[in-house]
Amino acid sequence: MNELSNRSRDIGEFIPQPDDDMIVCRCEEVTKGEIRKAVHEGLWTIAEIRRYLRCGMGLCQGQTCAKLVKGIVARELKVSPALLEPATSRSPMRPVEMHVFAKETEDTDL
């Protein structure tokens, strides 16, 4: 049991900040304010935030923003970033076009 598993813990109100419109995830154009708001709406894990806002799901697969998003969520939850489980790593690790994958079915000995 840690500060993250008790979802009824009071993390306070969402208070707007002057830099809320700053883009954090460039690929999916997600702002700092959107991420902070999501935490106050009850999305406390990186996986949840990712599914909700799509940050880290674009072309670079979170290479640039993963650490930044983690920092913002951790600050909002008032926990150490190390406590937050990073998003699940899934194949493909780099974006692969559908037509490339689709070629696999052309194999005869499948």
Partner: peptide, 16 residues
Amino acid sequence: AGLYQDREVVVRMGDE
């Protein structure tokens, strides 16, 4: 692009 527990490796080379 992928690595699985049974040590299978999926590699994108060119368009394949």
